[in-house]
Every structure is written in structure tokens, then in C-alpha cells.
């Protein structure tokens, strides 16, 4: 009995030892995993973390272009930016630009994806062609558009007048009411292929049987889109929507190259305002430029959280 008890004790001890070894082994693997992640983490921290923290840091100081001294001013720059009157209109214009641009991109992207998902001759060529605006260097694309909009060359106006769509030339980039739509047109032209190709990837795996079954049940094109295509592509759509919203909210190249934020402030969105503060206007105040960038961050986080919420709630309701 004693021997048996001792044996059980030995057995438990050895099992405990084995467990602890197992835990140790797992722990070693975890460490190895972390070790393998270190280069990637260091790169991410270096390329994203450091600039972010530095932007935060200089936003609490007065840092002017070329000036070595950088006195600490606490939240003075935030108070100044939020009260100077430039921030809120820029935020409004950024939302306007983002919401309208993304909405149009989704619509055109979805329509394009649906067309490209059908079987028709030349589909492969069309799929490649759709990617062109996305693949072109932004500088080339925007300079070309600027040429089209230009009041001297008048290419777009000439076409529109000849087509009897307008009666007299429109000052696309010189009138405040047209400048933002012009920027949106270029942004949409450049960005819709991302939606088209992404949504096409989401549409492709949907089995034809589902469409056939819907047809048998009497569903028309619109109903098949709403009840078959849309649910199938929804997760992909949400991811694309999230990414595109972030990119569009931070859009700088298109607007800067097209209008430099003008006329007046008509197309001055937050990224443009940040750049103007830091490198163009006033005292070339890098700190105030950083404040704009820092203030953009929570807005983007809220946007992303909202989109995530919609995705999650949708998935939960489906489950």
C-alpha cells in the first residue's frame, strides 16, 4: 500500500515534471515566436511608432522650420489650432471629400465588379484595363487631369461644350464650387479600381447555384444582387470600405497637385492644412502641422471603430 502510494506520488511527480517541461517547452516556443517577430516589430515601431511619437512630442513644443530651439509649450498649439478657425472648416471639407468620394467609389467599383464578374469576350483585357488608373503614378495622373481642367487648354470644356452638356466653359479649378468636385472626380477615377478588383475577388467565389436558385424563386436582377451578391461580398466590401476611408481621409497628393488647397481654402482638407502649416504658410510651424496630424488620428480611429462595429454586428446577426 505504501509502495503503491509512493508509486502514485512518483507518478504524479513525474507527470507534474512532464507538465512543467511541457509548459517550459511551450514557453520556449513562445519566446522563439517573439524572437522571430522582433525584426518585424522593430521595423513597424521604427517606421510607424517613432514618427507618431515624435509628432506627438513636437506638437507639445514650438518647432519652426530651421530653428534649433524647441521650447515646451504644453497644449498651447492645440488650443491655438482649434481656436484659429482653420481646423474646423478643414475637418468639414475632409469629411465632405471622404464621404462623397468613398460613396461614389463604392458604387462605381461595385458596378464595375459586377460587369467584370460576368462571362463576356474581352473580360480579361477589361479587368487589366480597369486597373490602369490605380496603377498609374499619382503625379502623372493628376497632372494629366490638371491639363484637362486647365482654363488655358480647355480640353474638358471643349468636349463638354461640343457635346452640348454645358453652354460655356466651367472654371473647374478656379471656382470654389467646382474645385472640390473636381478633386473628387480625380480621386474617384484613381480610387475606384481598388473597389472593383477587391469586390470582384469577393464576387468570384459565390457559386452560380445560388444565383440559379434565386432565379428559380423568381428573383430579378436587383433581388439577386441584394440577396445573393451583396451578402456574399459584404465582408470584403467592409474591409475595402475601411481601407479606402482611411486613404481618402488622408488624401494629399491628388488635392495638392490639382488645386494646392485652393482657390482660397476651398479644397484645404486636413492633410493639406497640416502641410501648409508646416511648410508653406505662416512661420513654417512644424508643431502646428503636427497638431493637425495628431488631431486626425482620433477621427480616423472613430471611423475605423464604427466600420468595425458594423462588420461585427452584421456577422453576429448572420451567426
Amino acid at each position: 500500500m505504501t509502495q503503491s502510494a509512493a508509486g502514485r506520488a512518483d507518478s504524479e511527480r513525474s507527470r507534474g515534471l512532464a507538465d512543467s517541461k511541457s509548459r517550459l517547452k511551450l514557453s520556449t516556443e513562445t519566446v522563439l515566436g517573439i524572437a522571430l517577430m522582433v525584426p518585424a516589430l522593430a521595423t513597424i515601431l521604427g517606421l510607424i511608432g517613432y514618427p507618431t511619437l515624435y509628432a506627438l512630442w513636437i506638437s507639445l513644443h514650438t518647432k519652426l522650420l530651421g530653428v534649433r530651439d524647441m521650447p515646451f509649450v504644453g497644449f498651447d498649439n492645440y488650443v491655438s489650432v482649434l481656436s484659429e478657425g482653420g481646423f474646423w472648416p478643414a475637418l468639414g471639407r475632409t469629411f465632405y471629400f471622404t464621404i462623397v468620394s468613398v460613396a461614389i467609389k463604392v458604387c462605381i467599383g461595385m458596378a464595375t465588379a459586377l460587369v467584370l464578374n460576368e462571362n463576356w469576350p474581352g473580360r480579361g483585357l477589361a479587368r487589366a484595363a480597369v486597373l490602369l488608373p490605380w496603377a498609374l503614378p499619382p503625379l502623372t495622373a493628376v497632372v494629366t487631369w490638371r491639363f484637362l481642367f486647365n482654363d488655358t487648354t480647355n480640353v474638358l470644356n471643349y468636349i463638354l461644350v461640343k457635346a452640348h452638356l454645358i453652354e460655356k466653359p466651367i472654371l473647374w479649378l478656379a471656382k470654389a464650387e467646382y474645385a472640390m468636385p473636381s478633386a473628387i472626380i480625380v480621386g474617384v477615377w484613381q480610387g475606384f479600381p481598388f473597389f472593383a478588383i477587391t469586390l470582384l475577388a469577393g464576387l468570384s467565389p459565390i457559386p452560380d447555384d445560388l444565383y440559379d436558385a434565386a432565379k428559380v424563386d423568381g428573383a430579378g436582377i436587383i433581388h439577386r444582387f441584394i440577396y445573393v451578391s451583396l451578402p456574399g461580398v459584404f465582408p470584403v466590401l467592409m474591409v475595402a470600405l475601411t481601407l479606402s476611408t482611411i486613404w481618402t481621409f488622408n488624401q494629399f497628393t491628388v488635392i495638392w497637385l490639382l488645386t494646392t488647397g485652393g482657390p482660397g481654402d476651398a479644397t484645404t482638407t486636413l492633410p493639406i492644412a497640416a502641410y501648409m502649416q508646416a511648410f508653406v504658410a505662416g512661420s513654417k510651424n512644424l508643431s502646428k502641422g503636427a497638431v493637425y496630424a495628431v488631431l486626425t488620428f482620433p477621427v480616423l480611429v472613430i471611423l475605423v471603430l464604427l466600420l468595425n462595429y458594423f462588420i461585427t454586428s452584421r456577422e453576429e446577426s448572420e451567426a
Binding site: 486647365n150 482654363d151 488655358t152 472654371l171 478656379a174 474645385a179 494646392t260 482660397g264
Partner: peptide, 21 residues
Amino acid sequence: VPPAAVNWEGGGNNQGYLTGQ
């Protein structure tokens, strides 16, 4: 002056002169 002059980029007036506008 051309209405677009309110938002010419740096080369706006160059282009205007060189094209005869």
C-alpha cells in the same frame, strides 16, 4: 485678368503668356 488667375499654380501665367491667352 483670366478668372482662373485666382488659383493659378506657379506655371499658370507662364502658360497663359506662352499660349497667347
